[in-house]
Amino acid sequence: MMTVVFGIFLLTLLVITAVAIVKEENLFTSVMLTGIFSLLMAANFFILDAADVALTEAAIGAGISTVLLLGALALTPRFERKGRTGRWLALFVVSLTTLVVMYATFEKPRLGDPNAPVHQHVAPWYLEQTPLLIDIPNVVTAVLGSYRAYDTLGEVIVVLTAGIGVLFVLGLPGAVGDRKREDLATGRTYLSHHLVPQVVGRLLIPFILLFAFYVQFHGEYGPGGGFQAGAIFAAAIILYALIEGEREALTVITPRMLMWMMSGGALLYGGVGIVTMLLGGNFLEYSVLAANPVTGQQLGIIVIELGVGITVAGVLLAIFHAFAARGR
């Protein structure tokens, strides 16, 4: 009951925010509202029992996505020109789609209905078998890392592709040059001369990094895992770049290192698959990794989660640097 009320409340805010994002002509405001949208969405996910998703949405939707949007906005016009073309057709198509969706609504199972088909098939098996077969508390991680590990590998490749794509389109971030002079020449400044953010930031960065590792390795027990950890790790480095300048950040993690992270994580993941094959199992069948199948599963999940984290962090950083470098 309480969930429903909270949900209705948050969802209503969500709709209002969404309408405002679309209506607003100042793109900067739209981006800010997108941040709010993500936070509200994450809160929603949370009260719908999806802790892992909520964490991901917050880290990626509200954090990384906002940074990227701002990075792009810094290079493009900030105001939208009112468009007049194709409005009626658009409205027609949209209304049609909505009507179709609404049409389906009334035969859908109610929210939280325990008799819904989704709760009868497959999912109960995961909940029952995970303690026996894999023995880690977080079933989401078990499904993600083992039962549907192939999907997750695909997901890592999607991220990698995005990285490749952005680097291909915008160019690779160059080698580190003389930051001060270049910044002077372009008139670009960083927050290093603002005392408060600098102090707070410098204080926070180690904690964020620590937290990233916590999320990475605690993923089997609580919400979290490679994606979230990678995003948080990247966020920490981005914070550093914001405070000290992105050239400075590139000396910490060099462009070459970024490339190694991008591909290394994916290769680590795929490598586990190859190893399981060589050991006589199917692709990504972790049970063969150790004498005890359950231990093998746990080992496999830890390693592939690490791979995920490395690639995600590498790609997100590379994308951030590509945008930032374009502004130079």
């Binding site: 083992s146 039962y147 549907r148 999907d151 199992g281 199917n282 692709f283 990504l284």
Partner: peptide, 10 residues
């Protein structure tokens, strides 16, 4: 994939 039978695995 992963040695998990359908419909639990892929």
């Amino acid at each position: 994939m992963g040695g998990w039978p359908a419909p639990y695995g892929i």
